[in-house]
Design a protein around this nucleic acid. Sequence first.
DNA 1: TATTGTTATACTCTATAACTATA
DNA 2: TATAGTTATAGAGTATAACAATA
Lengths: 143, 143
Amino acid sequence: MPTKEAAATRRLSEDLRLACMRISRRVRFESDHEVAPHQFSVLSRIEDGPLTPRALADIEKVSAPSMTRTVGCLVEDGLAERAAHPDDGRQVLVTITAQGREVLRATRARRDAWMVARVAELSAQERATLADAAKILAEIAAR
Amino acid sequence: MPTKEAAATRRLSEDLRLACMRISRRVRFESDHEVAPHQFSVLSRIEDGPLTPRALADIEKVSAPSMTRTVGCLVEDGLAERAAHPDDGRQVLVTITAQGREVLRATRARRDAWMVARVAELSAQERATLADAAKILAEIAAR
DNA sequence: TATTGTTATACTCTATAACTATA
DNA sequence: TATAGTTATAGAGTATAACAATA
């Protein structure tokens, strides 16, 4: 890649990263009250099916004892339950409860509300640009 | 706004918010090692001029004692300095040091490196879309 | 013997309440 | 009396090390 194009890529990457991080920060500041960020994160991991504490610790990149504690809080608050593993007596399956699903729904609704208010003020063309960008950004984040 | 258009706006807002938050999370996971997130945040607040602990606490939405501690860590690490306020003997001015500026530069470079690697793989057209989107997102975040 | 999960212990960041110095 | 900053103390979240139960 030529130097000039590389410089443009660098500038775009900076602008894009900063914009994403600032929006993320605003969303969290304005709307996260019900559960702590790491609890929300774990809750959304078990949304589509139970996982073991070990798996959750690896996914969330925290230690096993930390995950034990976080799961303990979720269970204590009625947002998740511990169940025995059918095949392996050592393992535990952390399962989301109906109340846990409700917390996920409400938190997402609050977060989205902030964003909807801003997107609604844009022009149709700006929204179209953002729709294209959202697809590309989602792919980047998934790598 | 018609119902159908409102639904599209809602969907776009969700997709966009999720993409931004996931990218933000990835960037932090992959590249934040030198200073803690809240230290980095405070450091960037005093980048363009000194601020008092009170002002920093308000901006960062933490308590005054928390900010006292964070500033204490920054000072201990040589990234910031405390200076007397010229007019008001009660107040303190927290000033960034040359070493503090270097930490900001290095952390930003690491964060950008992750993003540059991904943006470089995109097509010219995708980059053009993202460049337009970055402008719009920056405006949204600034509101 | 290796793995899963938990408990024991310590460190960091956060908060509220109380204290000191200055306006 | 009010404000800025700090110190005292306590409550979460995180980590490593040690332990119990199971494979």
